[in-house]
């Protein structure tokens, strides 16, 4: 599979079809993978693909990365889940489909965090998204690398996040509130969650807007709550549950929990699953006359 990937990358760069291949490569100890930007066909052998390739590289297609844009047209090594983010970026006018070459990777799952890797991919180190993956065979691509994967996601979503959601739904509002306050209290306002998210592509985030100061910048209860709620709201119906925010969070805040709960609500209310259709806009950013209004009492 890696050979096939390297061959394609070499071809793309040699023929000048793209200027850079954004993919994964080893660190110097060959213990972890890290994003690499291949511009020279001779370096195509640096590309790797394995269960450590958890990063969602679609972030590098967003306009914040001016120096990557300056390199020229990119090809991107993307798992199905990463492609969902590209789809949203295309539907929201952030990325032109023609301006990116998607190397879709057949995928059998990745680790939740690279630190958990012990040499074998087991169910308990896979993130919830992998257990319910509908796109192990990538859905929007220019080429697919790897053999077809035979996998049918379970009807009822499974995995730690959904277990927690079910547990959570039984709690009282007070218990839920206490749970989140407790978690958000650990927030250190580093905004790693925002920076890791390819759908948080605003060049000027609401946290940076200070006339008026919408969100208090201090890492205290009020400021942390405001930030975490706004982050979640801005992603409602858009978030593809890729999990990069939670992975990036140095304070271990269970952001996937809030993201997946929202995705469930959006699916239930609008029949919409984000990241599949480049033509359709996420429901919270458009108005349709037939939108449900039964919440207005």
């Amino acid at each position: 599979m890696e050979e096939q990937l390297r061959k394609e990358a070499r071809r793309l760069l040699t023929e000048g079809e793209v200027a850079v291949v954004i993919g994964y490569g080893w660190n110097s100890r060959k213990t972890r993978v890290t994003p690499v930007f291949i511009t020279n066909p001779d370096d195509a052998d640096k590309l790797v693909f394995n269960a450590l390739c958890v990063n969602n590289l679609s972030i590098y297609l967003t306009r914040k990365y001016k120096d990557i844009k300056a390199l020229g047209k990119p090809a991107i090594v993307a798992k199905g889940c990463d492609i969902k983010n590209i789809v949203i970026c295309v539907s929201e006018g952030q990325v032109a489909r023609d301006n990116v070459y998607i190397i879709g990777m057949s995928c059998t799952g990745v680790v939740y965090k690279q630190e958990l890797w012990q040499g074998e991919l087991t169910d308990n180190i896979m993130p919830t998204k992998c257990h319910n993956c509908e796109v192990r065979n990538p859905h929007v691509t220019d080429i697919v690398i790897g053999d077809k994967v035979d996998f049918t996601p379970p009807e009822e979503p499974t995995g730690m996040v959904f277990d927690k959601i079910r547990e959570f739904d039984r709690k009282t509002p007070k218990e839920r509130w206490d749970f989140w306050i407790d978690h958000f209290n650990r927030c250190i306002k580093c905004y790693a969650c925002r920076q890791a998210c390819s759908l948080c592509y605003c060049e000027r985030c609401i946290t940076d807007k200070n006339q008026p100061q919408w969100i208090e910048t201090s890492a205290h209860e009020r400021g942390n709550l405001a930030w975490n709620l706004i982050r979640a709201q801005h992603l409602t119906g858009r978030c593809t549950e890729c999990g990069e925010c939670e992975r990036a969070c140095p304070a271990n805040i269970p952001l996937n929990l809030v993201n997946s709960k929202q995705a469930l609500i959006v699916k239930e209310s609008f029949g919409y699953k984000s990241g599949f259709d480049m033509e359709e806009h996420p429901p919270m950013i458009v108005y349709k006359p037939e939108d449900k209004d039964d919440f207005i009492k």
Binding site: V36, I68, T217, S218, P250
Partner: peptide, 23 residues
């Protein structure tokens, strides 16, 4: 450094990083 997200997690967890804001 091209791959850096600019998330700041390194600085916030660093024992010698000292930068601050006054607001």
């Amino acid at each position: 450094a091209r791959k850096c997200f600019g998330c700041g997690a390194c600085t916030f967890s660093c024992p010698t990083c000292h930068c601050f804001d006054i607001t």
